[in-house]
Write a protein that binds this DNA or RNA. Structure first.
Ligand SMILES: [Mn+2]
Ligand SMILES: [Mn+2]
Ligand SMILES: [Zn+2]
Ligand SMILES: [Zn+2]
Lengths: 156, 156
DNA sequence: TTAATTTTGGAAATGATTTCCATTAAAAGA
DNA sequence: TCTTTTAATGGAAATCATTTCCAAAATTAA
């Protein structure tokens, strides 16, 4: 018998519980917000998107939870140069959507791209293997970003 | 006749002047500090290294100058996750020393590496060409970083 | 020199993130 | 279900890197 809609065990519950953390309404809400978009949300963005449905989740909890999720590897934290940290799920319920970023230094807009992603990842893995050996450094993940000026900013 | 030691026109003067900026003692001091190391200095680090020789250069000037240098493309600004921005010359008087970074998420130590750098740069350029066309985005530079745990942190 | 303009440092403001701590809620057992 | 243990919470206050302001100083051009 299937559970009622929205009550089923979520794909991420395992990892959270395995690490000794509890499943709470706030945490559900935060992951729900991140799952619902491809945007790169700041902590306040998350707060704004959650607040109607979960008025009793405070900003502090959001910072704390995002931090926890980053440590668990469920969320990536980025600095796109606009003065606030931005977050994105590493993978959704449907699986990974591996991509890198194009960052406009003018307006701070961010574009996800996947072109050449396989080549990039392949090279990165090769490099990782070499580096981790040479420096005895355990590599968990990588970051690739291109910086420049977006269409909108160019036409000004 | 050669100029007195330390008084010669510096490699970076051209770019600064061309952009209408003046050459000042503070600016000399800041570039001097960055030139003297491969470390990734924060604004306060620069202040500390300069303060003896140039006691009248304030922290505000350092922030302002670093910002200017980043805009001129003479300096890179990084976020290695320790809560403060870190800076590094894009190229020294001897020319470019293109490298990428290995960042320890434990202790925030940063390792410069150049292994596979040519392959990386070649692939990045190929990708850049494609992306700039596809998204009509002018790409100025790129960032590659690997995150993980360094030797010291591993042995604990 | 003088005048016009940029640069400056220090104090104060800003704003994202953290810290504190008394209260609440989740989970595990009885 | 009730109880006990322990983790999680939110709101106020603190933190601290960076910015903003502005009158004074330095630089450049005339
Ligand atoms: Mn993205
Ligand atoms: Mn470096
Ligand atoms: Zn833009
Ligand atoms: Zn380390």
């Amino acid at each position: 018998m299937p559970c009622r809609k929205g009550c089923g065990p979520q794909w991420w519950h395992g990892k959270v519980k395995d690490c000794g953390y509890r499943i709470t309404a706030g945490r559900e809400a935060i992951i729900e917000a991140l799952s619902a978009t491809h945007d790169h949300l700041s902590a306040e963005d998350v707060y704004a998107r959650i607040h109607n449905k979960y008025p009793n989740v405070g900003l502090t909890t959001i910072y704390r939870t995002l931090d926890m999720l980053v440590n668990l590897g469920l969320v990536f934290k980025f600095d796109f140069g606009d003065g606030k940290a931005r977050y994105e799920l590493t993978e959704g319920p449907k699986g990974a959507h591996h991509h890198h970023h194009l960052v406009c230094t003018g307006c701070k807009r961010v574009i996800d791209y996947t072109d050449f992603i396989d080549d990039e990842v392949e090279l990165l893995h090769r490099t990782e293997k070499c580096l981790s050996q040479k420096y005895n450094f355990r590599i968990d993940n990588h970051l690739i970003q291109f910086y420049g000026t977006c269409t909108e900013c160019l036409s000004k």
